[in-house]
Design a binder for these strands. Structure first.
Lengths: 250, 250
DNA sequence: CAGTGGTCTAGACCACAAC
DNA sequence: TTGTGGTCTAGACCACTGA
């Protein structure tokens, strides 16, 4: 087979057998070149593969270290919607992250991955509400949250304004826009990080992100039966898992 | 920035704007070389990135085509366990896939990603039950399912045999091994495909797989409180999504 | 400030499947 | 059969950052 496959497998084995324990450095590229008798390009192809697999973390001038695999943080599955006088909540646990920047609201064309969720065509106008969440103390970005709303429904309304008032966006939909009692549905997907996501989440290009999407469905008014919001959160897939109980049907 | 970033972005734009619609071929590497004025290595670096992003599908001698993004197949979330006289079932819909090969049962060391699920140390003995599921008509592999059972509990028992008798593995645990009424918990994660997974699922190396894990917990007997099985299914993340309803808490 | 990984070039041969 | 992507080499310069 390909030489770089062999080099990658040899490094993988050396890591899993403990020859290079987590946190340790593997030999520099020049030494791997000599060790395996291949060119630097081939060494780099193998290291790149193990990097996207999450095993290695190359850093300029600092060498390439074996990533310490942190326990994944557990996200509870949002199967229930709660509300109090302040608005709706979907998680039973309060997330420790805060918005690192003021949320941005823009209008633009609907991206291909969102169109089927909203029942729109690619390029149709949508209102995009973007939030970057993380640890304010360290500045570390932990999740990206983006809401897409159909432009024909949301543009020019309070939904397209940065502040949505007391109770938030869902109270506006239910009370002010007359969209009835809202329904929600959840979807979990995974895909490679985009260039922007990789930059913001500090990921190597091509590493997977875990996407949790919550769709909001109107039950009355001019939006009846339509998906009026798709809220997509994206996180480093190596750092998070979604966990849920399985109950016995009697 | 890097030249290959520019090339990748130019190709990405050309694809999303419809210049290269899904199913069409992009120019061959030699032409892209000339078009962007870079070396072939740089062109290939850009194409490799878009391949792991799932946008392109290079095929030898056939050129590189823009992948038609199929609608993701929806997997219902297994939040309930059903049973009838034949055994337990976890999905409300019957999957259209069948085992493409007879299931294999082996014993081996516990891999790092499974150890925390079973409460074992890496390398501890485990029983591994492997199934490859797909479409028998086309031979297309759609999902890989692997069960890990702690070796100290399962080795030498009926759980380590290919056939597990009427009612399957869970009836053996509940009725024959005295492990009480079983509990289950689900976990959803995503990661890069391993080399083996990429080969079996026909994926480019490094593309994401969506993992749905069901853990079985004993409530009585010598295994009381322990996770006695971790069933991990892996699928091409670009082909599947997990969907679930969100109900209003009153 | 020097050594590491990051990028890029020009060229070569190979393997495989479409033609 | 042949043209495409797949792999590999030897060498060069750069940019960042940790020693």
């Amino acid at each position: 087979m390909a030489r770089w496959h062999d080099v990658a497998q040899a490094l993988r084995d050396a890591i899993t057998t403990g020859q290079y324990p987590p946190g340790s450095k593997i030999p520099k590229e020049e030494e791997l070149e000599a060790q395996f008798g291949v060119s630097r390009t081939t060494v780099r192809r193998a290291v790149a593969q193990l990097t996207t697999e999450g095993l290695l973390l190359p850093v300029r001038r600092g060498g390439t270290t074996v990533r310490t695999q942190p326990e994944r943080q557990t996200l509870p599955l949002d199967t229930r919607a709660y509300r109090d006088e302040l608005g709706y909540y979907f998680s039973q646990t309060v997330q420790p992250w805060r918005a690192l920047q003021p949320p941005t609201v823009t209008e633009g064309p609907c991206p291909p991955d969102v169109a089927p969720l909203l029942g729109l065509a690619v390029g149709d106008p949508v209102v995009i509400r973007d939030r970057i969440m993380g640890n304010p103390a360290t500045g570390r970005v932990m999740q990206l949250a983006t809401s897409y709303l159909p432009g024909d429904l949301a543009a020019g309304t309070v939904l397209a304004q940065p502040g949505t008032g007391p109770g938030g966006i869902y109270d506006r939909m239910e009370n002010d826009l007359g969209w009835g009692t809202l329904d929600w549905e959840g979807v979990i997907t995974a895909r490679s990080a985009t260039a922007d996501e990789a930059r913001l989440l500090d990921l190597a290009p091509g590493t997977p992100v875990l996407c949790v999407t919550r769709m909001t469905i109107a039950t009355a008014g001019d939006a009846e039966g339509r998906v009026v919001e798709a809220n997509i959160t994206r996180r480093d897939a190596s750092l998070f898992e979604v966990r849920y109980p399985i109950t016995r049907a009697e």
